[in-house]
Design a protein around this nucleic acid. Structure first.
Lengths: 230, 230
DNA sequence: GACTGTGAATATATTCACAGCG
DNA sequence: CGCTGTGAATATATTCACAGTC
């Protein structure tokens, strides 16, 4: 056992955000960030950021100063396997699906959206997008042919499980499901369920007893340490 | 200290899903569900479901048989403060914002979307929706006047923090932020950051070492125990 | 002096396992 | 039985605190 090192999911979630942050900061050059700065942007503690970074291996941080952005980003890319560009598709082209299909930031993040699917021919005809769209029954073929690895599922709840299954059977290994059901996938793939309506309820429930925000951690809403995008 | 009982966040997240499930199943009547059935729908263990339910108080479950759906839903509504209808708004009417604005399931979930805001007059004029839309500079006034408690923020990253702050200052207590930055809010409010692009990266990273899906728990992808919507 | 990296301590969340009930 | 409810055991994640380095 213990093939590699197995990174805990909370750590993956944060490192993945750090990765996005690195891209945002762009500086391939020797610009450095400290764990405290990163923490401020993440809403986490500097401790946890440093601990997370240890999962990336050694010789990352310059002692005394912080982490070189370029190196950090690169190391995360390797550890989380984000270095390679992946082909993705959107299954279900309703309002949310079309919005995602048209979303521009995919390319920058290393995803290439190469197909959209919907069961309504009508919708396929009226839709206005640069991405090529196909009728639902061609999904398995297209995914296979186009070597698509990632599926964003934005179909109604009733269809979500079935769509995910079909996509995975065709070779997809990563599913992000936006339908308000918890989708499960065969063990060769991984799924993440994003339920917007549920987020609404959660935030409402969190507002209940608490006076203080929970997701925003230690230092409660104070101006971020350094670094502003513009 | 210890004013009430303080429900842990993972529990809130799950109970909130259970609430959604109860609504889906509709059965006000004496229909019952077991912790195992709920667990199957949630991708969690029956243990954790039962433990979660203990946070709702006592006399919920019928021993021997399961939980009466009606009672369960009601109890969750009370504990999570979901009983009351809340007024919500969408800040930023780009593709995602408009998609959310038009989304129909809010009403059923107890939210009334009464306003949309955008800084582009052009966009406000071309948009086609039943919800009333306003220019950005009216946001604070409208939120105050309309007693809006919830804001869904779908503006670009640069503007998200500022929008959230403005909304909170006008009386909003719950913010769901979809911009790819971690937004923080003053302590009288609560925020939930939903970063779609990050979810993509996370699912990709999770697919890395693992052969098995992580979010889908114990029983890996087998047909759900009972209950199918249709 | 300003940082990282990490053991040890702590807090938090999940699972086990079983008593108790209809 | 089949199922809930819950102490006790365990696993997981965060924080503390500090030695070590440029």
């Amino acid at each position: 056992m213990v093939p590699e090192k197995q990174i805990p999911i909370p750590t993956i979630e944060r490192l993945s955000k750090v990765y996005g942050l690195c891209e945002l900061l762009g500086g391939d050059t020797a610009t450095v960030v400290s764990s405290a700065m990163i923490a401020a942007h993440l809403g986490a503690s500097a401790d946890v950021v440093r601990r997370d970074i240890t999962y990336l291996g050694s010789d990352i941080g310059n002692n005394g100063s912080g982490y070189a952005i370029g190196r950090l980003r690169e190391r995360i890319a390797v550890a989380l396997d984000l270095a390679r560009v992946r082909r993705a598709c959107v299954v279900g082209l309703g309002r949310l699906g079309s919005a995602i299909l048209e979303h521009d930031r995919f390319a920058a993040a290393g995803y290439e959206v190469v197909a959209g699917f919907d069961s309504s021919i009508n919708r396929l005809e009226t839709i206005h997008t640069r991405v090529r769209v196909y009728p639902a029954y061609e999904m398995v073929d297209v995914i296979r042919r186009e070597q698509i690895e990632v599926a964003l599922v934005t179909v109604p709840a009733e269809a979500a499980q079935q769509c995910a299954d079909a996509a995975v059977s065709a070779g997809v290994r990563c599913v992000v499901n936006f339908a308000p059901v918890v989708v499960k996938v065969a063990s060769e793939a991984v799924v993440r369920n994003v339920d917007i309506m549920n987020e609404l309820r959660v935030v409402t429930a969190m507002a209940r007893g608490r006076g203080s925000s929970a997701e925003s951690s230690p230092e409660q809403h104070q101006a971020v340490v350094q670094l502003s995008t513009a």
